[in-house]
Design a protein around this nucleic acid. Structure first.
Lengths: 156, 156
DNA sequence: TAATTTTAAGCAATATTATTCTTTATTAAG
DNA sequence: CTTAATAAAGAATAATATTGCTTAAAATTA
């Protein structure tokens, strides 16, 4: 099992992180390799799980999703049951983009949430988040702007 | 200028947010439309800016990026110059995936950072972050796990 | 409601692109 | 060096995207 990532693989990954719909021919040209070995490398990295998948990134503002927030959540008990129940419930809410279990004294979970407006946020908070068992504290930070926003991981 | 998003567009966006490399034929089939109007809709939404782009999502763990952190940053002065300088500097660091200007008393900025290990994190903190002009406080929360992690915005 | 206009879908032909197989080259080990 | 293994290149075929044209559906007006 060759777990080595050479310079060609790195270049492929960098390109695909920027343009996930680049044609194999263009990709091959960009990394100075012919199409067939280029495609083989891509497929191998997909199978290895290095590439999780391909997605379209949408423009939140143009879709009317103007309010983003990071929400710190504190729990009463730190039991696996509490955590699992919370995670399952949150996973069913499409406005929750991310949920992270974090270290630190101020919160147990950190959520990234996106909604239409402040009214929708209020609905989310009152009707969804604060109704989850075990949630004792909620601290919201609204996003005013996001000068850096990338899905590209630092490779190489 | 038709700013209306109908049910076909919604279905297209939902599909593309899950599989950005789906073929136009498969996409057309999925939304029950023939390939040519399907492609036309996709192109239109790309031009309108509803679709920002397409990217490959990589597996951080398999790339050896095992440590993710959210970092709250406090600034001495809240002047545009300070903010711009910080943002420009941060944008040059590939380990910084996101940078958000946020509301709240605990921090001015919230960063999402990914690095190889704790040693790399220390290097980032000491050699990069804390050396930026105006940074008075830094509070780190490490990510233990991320049960929810999607780039798909709630459409429709 | 009927006629008209507008808008979008369907169809078919062409151009691109992906994919596979075979051959050739490069690299590593003995 | 020679041999074996690995990967790249090339060429042929299959799949897909793309375009222009025709037809249908929807919306508007009289």
């Amino acid at each position: 099992m060759s777990e080595t990532i050479d310079k060609y693989d790195v270049m492929i990954l960098q390109k695909l992180q920027t343009d996930g719909r680049i044609t194999n021919q263009e990709l091959a040209e960009a990394i100075k390799l012919s199409p067939s070995p280029c495609l083989r490398r891509v497929k191998q990295m997909e199978e290895k799980g290095l590439i999780d998948g391909y997605v379209a990134l949408l423009n939140a503002k143009k879709l009317g999703l103007t309010l983003m927030a990071f929400i710190g959540i504190s729990m009463d008990k730190h039991t696996p049951e509490r955590f699992e129940a919370l995670e399952t419930t949150l996973a069913s809410y499409p406005e929750v983009l991310e949920c992270h279990l974090i270290t630190g004294q101020s919160a147990d979970y950190l959520l990234k949430v996106i909604v239409k407006d402040m009214d929708a946020y209020q609905q989310f908070l009152l009707n969804k988040l604060t109704r989850i068992d075990g949630v004792t504290g909620v601290h919201t930070s609204f996003v005013m702007k996001s000068p850096i926003k990338t899905t590209a991981l630092p490779v190489g």
